[in-house]
Amino acid sequence: MLTESHVRATVAAALEEDAPWGDLTGEALVPAEARASAVLVAREDGVLAGAAVAEVAFHEVDPATDVQLLLHDGDLLKEGAVVATVEGAARAVLRAERVALNFVQRMSGIATQTRAYVDAVAGTGVRIVDTRKTTPGLRAFERHAVVCGGGRNHRFSLSDAVMAKDNHLAVLGDDPARITAALRDARERLPHTVHLEVEVDRLDQIDAVLAAGVDTIMLDNFSLADLRAGVAAIAGRALVEASGGITLDGIREVAETGVDLISVGALTHSARALDLGLDVEVAG
């Protein structure tokens, strides 16, 4: 979850990174008494995310900077839309500009890409979920952006749920009975609130996993035909998640195989930043 304390700490670190010894350009060229009014503008269509994070960036540099948010996270953007107005000491506004834009552009890009995937499966009942393929240190920001775009969050970290992937199963070996026993033992030792998911990459692994009473089975890199066969084999006894190599062009066909969830790493690891800009209107 994106908390206020986490936002402030992360934004403060970003500002320190961007101006560790001050803004030499602003201090050299801009009079200390100068004021600036600016607008944060969308330069293309998309979905907004990170508006409040941008606001924090301006306030971290100078709490007296006045930021008025006219649009909010999750709102649809049209080219030319004014997201916020900013007014304050010119040096402070200019110092915060790049960090504020970096957050809102990155997060809005993720929200926009997520919305495209969600729209592509509309009417199927399938949930689009993110993965742990996020920028280190920015996971909470990027996952918030996924939700702004209409997606859902998968487990946040390794500490949130049990997810046995192919490498975990490889350690256990190919014996189906051993895999079932290991998963059952894990289930017995886990608190009742902990979700248990297992990734399989072959149809012949499903029975052993099902026998352990898991909550979700991920069908990884399955063909459409094998996805349909996997859904039929599981037959409602666990949630079915599809993952691996899923593109926007092909996601509708994946959704129509009957899976419950589709996890897409591209929501976060391949999203293009949305073009927003800060335009100074008045300086004096």
Rank of each mutant, 00 (worst) to 15 (best):
G149I: 08
D175Q: 14
G258Y: 09
F141L: 11
T124L: 10
G236T: 09
L261H: 10
A212M: 05
D275N: 14
I179V: 14
L172F: 09
V61K: 03
E60G: 01
A182M: 03
V231N: 11
E16G: 06
L70W: 11
L219R: 12
A42W: 02
P31I: 12
I110K: 08
E60A: 15
A273I: 07
G151F: 12
A19K: 11
R98F: 03
E256K: 13
T247E: 03
V86Q: 04
E27L: 14
S223I: 04
L190Y: 03
R91M: 02
E97R: 13
D201N: 12
H168L: 06
D220S: 08
M218W: 13
V104S: 03
M107H: 10
V41N: 00
A208Y: 12
E27I: 13
V200P: 01
G265D: 04
L2W: 10
L203D: 06
I179C: 02
V56C: 05
L183W: 07
A273F: 09
K133V: 07
T65Y: 06
K78Q: 09
E44T: 02
L183T: 05
H144R: 15
L196V: 09
R95H: 02
A12C: 06
A19N: 13
V280R: 05
I206C: 08
S5L: 14
I110W: 12
A57L: 02
I179Y: 02
V126D: 04
Q105V: 02
S263E: 02
V61R: 09
A49N: 07
D130M: 13
D66Y: 04
A49E: 06
F58M: 01
D201G: 03
L261A: 01
L276A: 04
V61I: 15
V209W: 07
H192M: 08
V67W: 05
K133M: 11
E4F: 04
A242L: 10
R98V: 01
D185G: 09
V129F: 14
A186V: 04
H154D: 08
V147T: 08
I251N: 11
H192R: 15
P176C: 09
D226M: 12
A140E: 14
L70Y: 04
A271Q: 09
R202P: 00
S263F: 06
L190H: 09
V93F: 08
E4H: 13
V41D: 00
L239D: 02
E281K: 14
T85N: 06
A92R: 08
S159Q: 11
R152E: 05
E142F: 09
K78C: 07
